[in-house]
């Protein structure tokens, strides 16, 4: 499957100034996203994963220009989103939708499902007024909501159903790309599986492209074609989903994967316990940002920022990582946690 590039992010930086000092001037920047580049092809699901503060959500917000990026380009379907006018951006919103973690917060409690969806349909003039109802029922059916429930209010639905309504709203304007920002994180497992299957079905049927922002790697593995691993505002590893899960190169990715408890008491994972917390994004470590927690870090790591590169001898695969020593690291030399 080769598809054309739908979204191309290059050199994206999103800094937030920290005000302070005697006169309230800028004293520093929070480098939430610091020079990241990636591409999303049409019909693919690309996931951005990482822990809190890694910049994954900010990336999504910058792409949609909820924040104005400090630097870099976001080319969506041939248009540079960082430079288009607000008006053009508004028009493009129909092709570029977002679904949030908390569907309840993003649905107007005073509007019925019908009103919510009509509003979205009318703003973007998706279908003529006469065909609105048919289209509405079609959408609801698609996401698994009974058309008879169209005149209910959001609070009359459960969390999973509300997320379906959020998906219906995003779909109503016939988008090309949907950014799912922790879209299934708040749902219980049994409901989460329903929504994940729905997202996959919609992708197959409508050729949708997803940029999936999530912290749950089980969900991510299940839904993604490609994965981007972020740490403190930088991409540390990126590649095909199975490559990342089966053959992780960066010590952070490795540690992250090993930290997830496996639902199989017989197959307790060999865990790399990382020391300490993620450093503050206000004060990022020099060199490789992971060096303060990396069990393999050397002095060199503290000095030189590693570039994303393909591991030696693996030129054929779509897989890059940013570690000076990825070929040399012998993970088996690590002392794993003693309880497993």
């Amino acid at each position: 499957m080769t598809h054309s590039t739908l979204l191309k992010v290059s050199g994206l930086k999103q800094y937030f100034p920290i005000k302070g000092g005697f006169f309230g001037g800028k004293v520093n920047d929070v480098k939430a996203v610091d020079d990241i580049s990636f591409e999303v092809n049409e019909g693919e699901t690309v996931s951005i994963v990482g822990e809190s503060g890694c910049g994954k959500s900010t990336t999504g917000r910058s792409i949609l220009r909820f924040e104005t990026p400090t630097a870099g380009e976001v080319i969506f379907d041939g248009t540079n989103l960082t430079t288009v006018s607000k008006k053009e951006l508004k028009q493009l919103r129909s092709e570029l939708q977002i679904i949030f973690q908390d569907p309840y917060a993003s649905l107007n409690p005073r509007q019925t499902v019908r009103q919510i969806l009509y509003e979205a349909i009318d703003i973007q003039k998706v279908v003529p007024k006469g065909e609105r109802e048919d289209y509405l029922f079609e959408l609801l059916e698609l996401v698994g909501i009974q058309p008879s429930q169209a005149d209910r209010f959001p609070h009359e639905f459960s969390g999973g159903q509300r997320q379906r309504i959020g998906i219906a709203r995003a779909l109503s304007v016939k988008p090309k790309l949907i950014i799912c920002d922790e879209a299934v994180s708040a749902l219980d497992v049994s409901i989460q599986a329903q929504v994940l299957n729905l997202l996959k079905k919609l992708q197959r049927e409508m050729g949708l492209t997803y940029l999936f922002i999530a912290h749950d790697l089980g969900v991510v593995r299940h839904i993604s074609d490609k994965i981007i691993v972020m740490y403190l505002g930088k991409i540390v590893e990126m590649g095909d989903s199975e490559e990342i899960f089966e053959n992780p190169q960066h010590p952070y990715t490795k540690a992250l994967l090993s930290a997830i408890p496996v639902p199989n008491p017989k197959k307790k994972s060999q865990r790399i316990l990382l020391k300490g917390d993620v450093p503050s994004p206000m004060n990022v470590p020099s060199g490789c940002r992971f060096h303060t927690r990396c069990p393999f870090a050397t002095e060199y790591c503290a000095k030189k920022v590693p570039e994303l590169r393909t591991p030696n001898d693996q030129e054929t695969v779509n897989h890059v990582a940013a570690c000076h020593y990825m070929e040399e690291i012998d993970f088996s030399s690590l002392e794993y946690s003693k309880n497993v």
Partner: peptide, 24 residues
């Protein structure tokens, strides 16, 4: 069984999840 079937796993490759129908 339904819980185990609907859980997306990071450690193994699964084709399709089998969710539990309906809701609590």
């Amino acid at each position: 069984v339904g819980l185990l079937n609907s859980l997306p796993r990071h450690d193994i490759k699964q084709e399709e999840l089998t969710p539990i129908d309906g809701m609590v």
